[in-house]
Design a protein around this nucleic acid. Structure first.
Lengths: 227, 227
DNA sequence: GAAATGCTTCGGCCGTCACCGTAACATTTT
DNA sequence: AAAATGTTACGGTGACGGCCGAAGCATTTC
């Protein structure tokens, strides 16, 4: 099998509307069952099963059986990055369905979403404004004051397998607002912390997240947003 | 048109073997004619024309007519990044066709290739070894000594639209050797310089590049490789 | 103006694949 | 053991799309 053939295989696997919907649903890192994925894709479980088998052999998703359930998740972070990058191109192609203007920060907060590895635009903005991170289109870096902030939150990034030296992170342009997100290991760690600390909660059955009152207070105090 | 539909559209556009081959051929940034692309994809010009039309409406490639020729190129850097990321997943899926062991540096040099925005593994290695860049999986940064080196080469990155502050770059895992490349603006600038200075030349009709004797000397003197 | 070159459009053929209904299998619950 | 639930396997149908040959435009060359 030649290299472009494998390439085409991967792209085709992601290119079916039903499969695209499933992958999209998995982009927040959760593991879902075939039935759930069938529902989000608007197809019957039988059809979904076939799609999932195909995605699995293509190496895009991995399955983990647990009792009578089989949980499906994205196979690797590389897959998530791929999906992001395709979304990126898709966002460029189909121009702004949400106007580029960004409303009041707290409105953005309430509408917050997460995708795999991501934290909201508002957080990234706030951290940039306070000099805790610097973002370029290609890459980002966490400054000393940013590292200090994260450590105050109990996020020790060196312990998370980051090597000594500067702390780097990966930016991600948000699909709807077209503004940089914070992604990569730093984004994921921060996101996890927000969940663990009870600052945000997942809204049942959707990919949206809700900011709790506790979270609202902390975001205001620590990041100065949502005031 | 919903968002996942656009997503599927994009992925499908890249997912046909013939189209994948064409996109692959365009990944070095060159602009090619329909006939050339037909040849690399192994199809007739009529068929290629149809594919190119589809790729164009999908926003993956852009055309530029010049006389009786029509030159096709990747539409945006985002498209190039997308193709890279798909390649990445493809490389993970279809495991090492070239063993992971990296031979003598100069052998790697002679086999050097370029893809869009990229410079070889050897250069990245050398710069890392000399503390001129630092690379993490998610991002990279050019150190002060790295900036100095680039300036000695006549590459002024601030002039290239980079804002003040730290100079960031984007790493890219090579498809065949699975080692980090230097990509993004810094990689592109360095690559351009190598061509302009006559250090490397494109091998007619392929995506491979050849290191000239002049280049060999400079790489040895400046980066300490190929000795 | 006529011939040549590069490219696109049209029409028809054929394979691939998404989809569902039905049915079988596996695991858990009663 | 029997029923319920989650999942996969099979067979048939229909549509989308890739492919080429032939023909039509556009641009350049003779």
């Amino acid at each position: 099998m030649t290299r472009t053939a494998v390439f085409a295989e991967i792209a085709t696997a992601a290119g079916d509307p039903a499969r695209a919907g499933m992958l999209n649903a998995l982009m927040d890192g959760r593991a879902l069952t075939a039935s759930e994925l069938a529902r989000v894709a608007g197809i019957t479980p039988q059809t979904a099963s076939g799609h999932l088998a195909r995605l699995t052999v293509a190496g895009l998703i991995a399955v983990e059986k647990q009792g009578r359930h089989r949980y499906h998740r994205l196979a690797t972070p590389a897959v998530a990055r791929m999906l992001e990058s395709i979304m990126q191109v898709a966002a460029d192609a189909e121009p702004p369905r949400i106007k580029a203007f960004v409303g009041p920060r707290d409105a953005a907060m309430r509408a917050a979403r997460t995708c795999y590895d991501h934290l909201g635009v508002a957080l990234a903005d706030a951290m940039v404004a306070r000099g805790q991170i610097e973002l370029a289109p290609d890459a980002g870096i966490v400054t000393d004051s940013g590292v200090a902030l994260l450590q105050r939150l109990g996020i020790d990034l060196e312990a998370r397998g980051k090597r000594k030296g500067r702390l780097l992170c990966r930016p991600c342009l948000d699909w709807s607002e077209r503004r940089p997100h914070l992604a990569g290991a730093v984004g994921a760690a921060l996101c996890t912390h927000c969940f663990d600390a009870g600052w945000i909660k997942r809204v049942e059955g959707t990919r949206a997240v809700k900011v709790t009152t506790k979270g609202e207070r902390n975001f205001r105090e620590i990041f100065g947003i949502g005031g």
